[in-house]
């Protein structure tokens, strides 16, 4: 069966809240009912039918034809199934999702995978700030699942991350891995700014190194660690290819301002 498709009629004038367009929610709706779901964010009260042409099929797989940076909350709280976006997407892509697969061909906005607990996100382009991070006031960011961003990540990626794995194919913006609690992040490029500020625990592989390390990060020497080999293998199974193979790497520990049990590995 082919996917349930939302074809964008044109660039929307306002931000669109797509949080209701997830498989478990749409499973029992007819096309006419779906077309009447509210998605607007202004007093105009836009409905799905105002923004998209809907072709009904199996809601287990949802496809957005033609994306837009204004399509927010795609895949928010999704529990299973698949959503594919043929283009860019807006803020809070896959926020708080617990299962399933979420793919964007283009770039996505801030808070991609925010506080997600499970499932898999891939982003073909770049992502905005606070990849996997918490929304305002929340105490934890990503707590499970995997995110693969093929391009660059914005500022403060993996903020307050607690569990799960992230792979960034490009660089990370300023102050990545801030307040990280645990989890694993691999970056093929470099980290701008000062990575890991106030991180407690967590493991980071930075193939391109960092612009600068805070004075509360200390060099722990070059290590040939079994754990790196195991990690490379395990992450390889998740992401296909990872940019490190378990060869010896230099370990930098921090942030000693808070606990100091975080580890940043850079090529030796």
């Amino acid at each position: 069966m082919s996917a349930l498709t939302f074809r964008l009629k044109g660039e929307p004038e306002e931000r669109i809240d797509c949080s209701s367009l997830v498989p478990h929610h749409l499973a029992n709706f007819s096309p006419a009912e779906i077309a009447r779901l509210p998605v607007g964010t202004t007093k105009r009260g836009l409905l799905v039918g105002d923004v998209f042409e809907v072709s009904r099929n199996d809601a287990g797989e949802i496809r957005f034809e033609g994306g837009s940076g204004r399509l927010d909350r795609i895949g928010q709280a999704m529990q299973g199934g698949v959503i594919r976006v043929a283009g860019p997407a807006g803020f809070r892509f896959g926020r708080a999702m617990t299962g399933g697969e979420l793919h964007a061909e283009g770039s996505v906005g801030d808070l991609c995978g925010s506080a997600m607990a499970g499932g898999r996100i891939t982003v073909g382009g770049d992502c905005g700030a606070r990849l996997g991070g918490p929304d305002a006031g929340e105490m934890k960011g990503m707590s499970g699942g995997t995110i693969h961003v093929k391009g660059n990540a914005g500022e403060r990626a993996a903020d307050r991350m607690r569990r799960g794995s992230v792979l960034v194919g490009g660089d990370c913006g300023k102050d990545a891995f801030s307040r990280m609690i645990a989890g694993t992040v691999v970056v093929k490029g470099k980290a701008h700014g000062v990575p890991g500020r106030l991180m407690k625990r967590g493991t980071i592989v930075l193939m391109g190194g960092a612009e600068r390390y805070a004075p509360t990060f200390v060099d722990a020497g070059v290590h040939d660690l079994l754990v790196l080999k195991l990690m490379a293998k395990a992450l390889g199974e998740v992401f296909g290819v990872v940019p490190f193979d378990g060869s010896p790497m230099r370990k930098i520990s921090g942030d000693t301002a808070i606990l100091g049990l975080g580890e940043i590995y850079v090529p030796a």
Partner: peptide, 10 residues
């Protein structure tokens, strides 16, 4: 802010 009504659906 995370417990305000506006966030409640989340």
């Amino acid at each position: 802010p995370e417990w305000h009504r506006a966030f409640s659906a989340r």
